[in-house]
């Protein structure tokens, strides 16, 4: 077991080193793409907190991502850069508040109802930004300046610089990754995993599970919001599509593709998804057809996702054939 944790630790260090070195060798286009993977990785990790750890299948996670992205665009002044720390804090708080409001309602339901209701509330958020003047309609809003990380008169780094933006996103992703790992082994995290395993028993042991689920929902919403902020800063514009239910399905697919119940899996899933989309869209304009096929194949033939693949291969070799 210790050998296994060692290998995992080394693997994570190698991946981190490779990610840190990447801007030195990669082209601007691909550096931006890796940054996008990291942002979506945070988004997927936040959803995994619900789906993989608490057992709540939310099909509306794009709402918190999109609301925070819009918050950045709406808070930022039109002709000057905003303060990064202010917009970041405000946007994350707003998405957490939205998650609290929606969570209070949707967590009254379970099973199929929960899936449908989370989807429906996301659609409501979509319409609020799509139909009203607030969100600039279907065209969305441009962010004219990247926010500045100013603290008083001091500017520790500059996001207008591509590679510095990349390192900032990488740092946030690592923080979220480590943070989620810590939360999962905390008393709170253990309760979430217990709820996924057997919620009824958790209740009879004295845990008011609604409060824990609400806590997980708000935390996941806040982290999705953090991803949304980074997305807005990285690409410089927001559209209602960020809140669309396809975005929710998309991020859920990342979690499953990578393997749910593991922050590594979530990031892996985000990377695989972006890579597949890029590869397929080079092949054909009808790349969604291939994507749909991949989704069917993963669910039918790859339970446990990519992260379970090495273990399954090992088992296959050991048993000497495809049986069992």
């Amino acid at each position: 077991m210790t050998i296994k944790t060692h290998t995992a630790g080394i693997a994570q260090a190698v991946v981190l080193a490779a990610l840190a070195a990447y801007p030195l060798v990669g082209s601007e286009f691909y550096v931006e793409m890796v940054a996008k993977v990291l942002v979506l990785g945070i988004f997927a990790m936040s959803l995994d907190l619900l789906v993989g750890f608490t057992g709540l299948v939310s099909l509306g996670h794009s709402a918190y991502f999109g609301v925070a992205a819009y918050a950045v665009a709406l808070i930022a002044p039109e002709f000057a850069p905003a303060n990064l720390w202010f917009v970041l804090g405000a946007a994350v708080l707003i998405s957490a508040a939205v998650a609290l409001g929606i969570g209070l309602l949707v967590l009254r339901t379970r099973g199929i109802y929960f899936i449908m209701v989370t989807l429906a509330f996301t659609q409501m958020a979509f319409f609020l930004f799509h139909d009203t003047a607030l969100g600039g309609g279907s065209d969305g809003i441009y962010l004219n300046f990247r926010p500045e990380p100013r603290i008083g008169g001091w500017m520790p780094f500059d996001l207008a610089e591509g590679s510095q933006l990349y390192y900032f996103i990488l740092a946030v992703a690592v923080l979220v990754f480590v943070g989620i790992k810590r939360v999962l082994r905390s008393p709170f995290g253990r309760v979430l995993v217990g709820i996924k395993s057997n919620e009824h028993r958790m209740r009879s042991l004295g845990y008011s599970t609604f409060n824990y689920k609400l806590g997980a929902f708000v935390l996941a919403g806040a982290l999705a919001g953090l991803a949304g902020v980074l997305y807005a800063v990285l690409f410089g514009f927001v559209t209602p599509e960020l809140l669309s239910w396809h975005e929710s399905g998309h991020v859920l697919m990342m979690v499953i593709l990578g393997g749910m119940g593991s922050p590594v899996g979530a990031v892996l899933g985000a990377g695989a998804m972006v890579a597949l989309e890029e590869a397929f869209s080079l092949l054909t304009t009808h790349w969604q057809l291939l994507m749909g096929g991949v989704i069917l194949a993963v669910v039918l033939f790859l339970p446990g996702g990519l992260i379970a693949l090495p273990g399954r291969m090992r088992q296959l070799i050991k048993s000497g054939g495809p049986h069992e």
Partner: peptide, 26 residues
């Protein structure tokens, strides 16, 4: 899916839940 110890530990934790200590090691 949990160990016997974790089953009992989770039950014991319910008496003093400390839900806010997000970064403590259970």
């Amino acid at each position: 899916g949990f160990t016997v110890l974790e089953n009992c530990r989770l039950a014991a934790q319910s008496r003093h839940q400390r839900a806010w200590r997000l970064f403590a090691n259970a």
